[in-house]
Design a binder for these strands. Structure first.
Lengths: 205, 205
DNA sequence: TAGATTGTTAATCGATTAACAATC
DNA sequence: TAGATTGTTAATCGATTAACAATC
């Protein structure tokens, strides 16, 4: 009944914490503190403790946090203690690179299909996948019941593709096209546009 | 002498405004308002006016903003009314896709070289570039005097590459490796990690 | 002119930090 | 035990919004 609403800005930092913890685990470390984590990430120790306290009590006074335990807890919070299947729409350079990318598997995601509308590309393979005809996108997505998709088509087609994905039941879209998408309530969009990041830095040069 | 410090969060929204304005220009539009821009971007009109007012007065009461004029002004503010040459380090799937990407040119950036340390790759071509030996990275970068680079090497090598880039004079790094980098004062880093964005959405699913 | 929309001020809202009792 | 570090409260800081005079 009572669902505390967690500020989005805090939700957005949890994946960063998780990534750092998983890296520490790879380094063979077992415990850490809010201070150490903060130093690695350039975030204050107080903020890390405050953020985590939104979701529960995960540490021990005096000794800090178990890296493995905290990583497991954050994984559960973010629902990445499971694997989400994904579709990639657009088999250009970016879409193909994403489809072949090996770094999703152990972080909760798994590409299972890729689409394009170019007759030259349909039927060709990208990594372990055969490029499917975009026309069959709705059927294929509905059949598998996946909820996560990535858009890597030209800007001019991105909104149309997004509309079709939403109709097919997709709830989360990672958009590589450099354009803002309109989606209905209950559908989430995140953007990746390298130029936005680059322009943000040149201001300071 | 007097340099007003603009909050980074505002600087970070300027590229978003610029992208939307350039898109409107492509659509053949000539003027817009803070309200229209806000609706497109999901940002309040008041915030857009407040943000822009940090840098000057660009609008006209009653009629709003000239799209072309405002885009030019923001381009100047972000220093993308020129073209920044860039180096790409790491010629894997992501690095290669980035090197071939056609969308930088008209937004202020231009890849001019790509490096890798794999003997199998050195000498091969990626788009219009020949992959150069990473060992020659410092020399090549110093010679050309470029200030912007992208890292697309495995996480384990990313910090070392960053250190070398900084020594070679790079001031802005776009890092595709899923790891936080430590760089000295005066060097800027931005991160692209698709998984971070995906995990931020699954929380809400 | 009347209507529209800016730039800016003041009010509100939310996020970050500092500090510390609790306790491992 | 003494030292360290959590979780939390209160204080500070900063960002967003609402409102409106100015004016095109």
């Amino acid at each position: 009944m009572e669902e505390k609403i967690i500020p989005d800005i805090i939700v957005g930092r949890m994946p960063i914490y998780l990534r750092a913890l998983q890296r520490m685990a790879e380094e063979g470390r077992h415990t850490t503190s809010s201070q150490e984590l903060g130093e690695r990430l350039g975030i204050s120790a107080a903020q890390i403790r405050k953020d985590l306290s939104q979701f529960g009590e995960f540490g021990k006074q005096g000794s800090g946090y178990s890296i493995q335990f905290l990583a497991e807890q954050i994984s559960k919070i973010l629902k990445v203690n499971r694997v989400w299947d994904m579709a990639v729409v657009g088999a250009g350079d970016i879409g193909s690179a994403v489809a072949r990318y090996q770094g999703f598997a152990n972080r909760g995601f798994n590409v299972i299909m890729i689409f394009d509308n170019d007759p030259e590309k349909i039927g060709m393979s990208v990594g372990p996948f055969i490029i499917q005809d975009s026309a069959t996108l709705e059927t294929a997505i509905q059949q598998t019941g996946i909820q996560v998709a990535m858009i890597s088509v030209p800007s001019s087609e991105a909104q149309t593709v997004a509309d079709r994905l939403v109709k097919a039941g997709i709830k989360a879209i990672l958009n590589y096209a450099p354009i803002s998408l309109n989606v209905p309530e209950g559908v989430y969009v995140q953007y990746i546009d390298p130029v936005i990041h680059l322009q943000r830095m040149t201001y300071y040069l």
